[in-house]
Amino acid sequence: MRARLTTLSMVGPALVLFVVMLVVPVCLSVYLSLTDWNGYSANPVVVGLRNYLDLTKSEEAIRAGWVTLVIAAVGTVLLSVLGLGFALLVNGASRLNALFRVILFYPHVLSALVVGFLWSAVLGTSGVVNGWLTTRGAEVLPFLSNPHWALASLIGVLVWAGFGVNVVLYLAGLQTVSKDLLESARIDGASARQTFRNVTLPALAPVVTVNLVLSLVTLLKTYDLVVSLTGGGPAGSTQTAAYLILWDSFHNNALGFGSAQSVVLMIVTAGLALTVARLRSRADQGVKG
C-alpha cells in the first residue's frame, strides 16, 4: 500500500497536469468542432459534422492546408539533407569546426518572431536589399510581395533558422558510429563513399528518423514566422493552417470551425509522423535483413 502511494506521488503530479492542460483541451477541441460556438454565447449548439463539411468547401482552408504541406515537405527534406551534410562537414574536433558549429546553430537561439521581423526588414519591398538595389538603379525584387516568392522566402528563412538543430542532432548521431567498424573499414581499404553507405548511414538510421519526425512536426505548426515575416500575405498566399486556425478562432469568432481545422491538423500531424516513423523502421529492417 505504501509502495503504491509512493508510486502515485511520483506519477500523479505530472499526469494530472498533462491531463488537465493537454488531454482535456484536446477533447474540448473535438467537442467544439461539432458545435457552432462563437466563443462567448452561453450554450454551444451541436451541429454535427457541419464544420467539417464546410472545411471541405472552404477555399481558404484548403489553400492553407496545401501551403502547410508544401512547407512541411520541402522544409523537412531541406532540413534533413542540409543537417546531415553539414554535420559531416563540421564533425571533426578542431577549433575551426567548433566555430562553424556555433555559426550554423546560432539562429535557433533567436525567436521565430524576431527572425521574421529581421528578414522582413531585409527582404521587404522597402527593405534593406531592395533599398540597396533602388539606390543603384536596379529593379526591386518581390521577395515578400509575389505569392510564389513569398512562400519560397518563408521556407528559406525557416531553413536558415532551423537547420542548425538538425546539424547538432546528426552530430550526436555521428558520435554513436562505432569507431572499430570505421577503423576496420579503413584497413579493409573501403572508399569514403563505401564506408559512409555501409557503416555510417546504417548507424545513423535512428537519428534520421528522429530528424524527419521532429522537422515534420515542427514545420506543420509554423505560425510565429508567418506573423512577423509575411503576415500571411500577399493575398493569403502564405497563410498556414495554424495561422488560419488562430485567425478564425479569435478574430472571426468562428471557434467551432477553427476547432474543426485544429482537429484535422492534429490528425494529419500524428498520421504523417507515425507514417514516416513506420516507413523508416521498415527501411531499417530491410537494411538489416
Binding site: V20, V24, L246, M266, A270, A273
Partner: peptide, 20 residues
C-alpha cells in the same frame, strides 16, 4: 500517452486551453 503529446501543435492547443 505522454509521448503522443509531442504530436499536438501547441499553437492550436492554446485555443481550448484558454477555456480550460
Amino acid at each position: 500517452l505522454f509521448v503522443a503529446g509531442t504530436f499536438i501543435p501547441s499553437q492550436v492547443l492554446v485555443i481550448p486551453v484558454v477555456y480550460t
